[in-house]
Amino acid sequence: MNVFCKVFRFYYEGFRSMTLGKTLWIIILVKLFIMFAILKVFFFPNFLSSKADSKEGKSEYIVNEMEKRTHKP
């Protein structure tokens, strides 16, 4: 049996014989789904990308924001 088959069987049998691990994997998968398919998509868009497409546009936006917020002595 080659190395890849051995590694595959190792993981396959490991996952198959899990007891507590199954519950934990369900928690991990549900958590990752909530994080990446719901939170990231609907609540955490890349803010700068909504303001400008190019790197130049983004840096321009940041400078404008900074100038707006600077203290005028």
Binding site: I28, L32, M35, L39, N46, F47, L48, I62, M66
Partner: peptide, 23 residues
Amino acid sequence: AIGVATGLILEFQFGTNWSNYSW
């Protein structure tokens, strides 16, 4: 297992709430 990836949410916040900082 329960804790893994909870830190990634901090990175989401960098991109949305703290974008000036991220840049």
